[in-house]
């Protein structure tokens, strides 16, 4: 009887340790989105939404980009740092500078922990149709917690991971062929509180 109880206890301990190991290893692998392509501060992965996505990529998509379109339709680039490699911080003012990518439609949106950032302007992004451009076609979006003069993208007043997403719908073939080198917006830190 004692031996049986000892064996059952060992099995129970073994299962609990196995569950803890399984959970911890999955957390470590999935805690951040993975991306096979990097272009400056922006990262993307061509298997997003695809039937070729692997076990871990599907799990990451469900956590960080549920119901994303596959890359033949849309590319999703994420940025967590500025162009100097420092994490985006809501207490800083950033200038996001770029030109329209070669694509049918694009947008740059800001998120706090993957959700919209509450603000009085009801503004969460700028897109091909809503951004105000300079005469030469370039544009600048100002990511900041305090109101800015033009193209203000609020970064909010709550702590959390600040993330930028660049969506590129129906990109041109030359854009897709040069994902690692095409011109994408720069994120320049200007000041911090």
């Amino acid at each position: 009887m004692k031996t049986l109880l000892q064996t059952l206890l060992k099995i129970l301990v073994s299962v609990i340790i196995a569950l803890l190991l399984a959970f911890a290893s999955a957390y470590l692998i999935l805690r951040k989105p993975d991306a096979s392509i990097r272009n400056g501060v922006w990262t993307t992965d061509l298997t997003t939404g695809s039937e070729n996505a692997g076990l871990y990529q599907r799990a990451r998509i469900s956590l960080y980009a549920l119901w994303a379109l596959n890359s033949s339709e849309t590319l999703y680039f994420l940025a967590r740092t500025d162009s100097d490699g420092n994490r985006l911080n809501r207490q800083c003012v950033y200038s996001i500078e770029g030109r329209d990518p070669q694509t049918r439609w694009w947008s740059v949106a800001a998120y706090n922990d993957y959700h919209f950032i509450p603000n009085t302007k009801n503004r969460f992004s700028y897109s091909k149709t809503s951004v105000e451009r300079e005469p030469d076609g370039n544009w600048e979006i100002r990511l900041a917690s305090q109101k800015q003069e033009k193209n203000w993208l609020p970064s909010g007043d709550k702590d959390g991971e600040l993330i930028l997403a660049l969506r590129v719908y129906n990109p041109a073939p030359e854009f897709v062929q040069n994902l690692g080198s095409v011109s994408l917006p720069k994120i320049v830190k200007e000041s911090c509180q």
Partner: peptide
């Protein structure tokens, strides 16, 4: 224990997108 952990890990990661969806 390690074999069980590997099994739980794979099943959990496989099931996660289905659960979240």
């Amino acid at each position: 224990t390690i074999s069980l952990a590997a099994l739980f890990h794979l099943v959990g990661v496989w099931y996660l997108p289905r659960f979240i969806t």
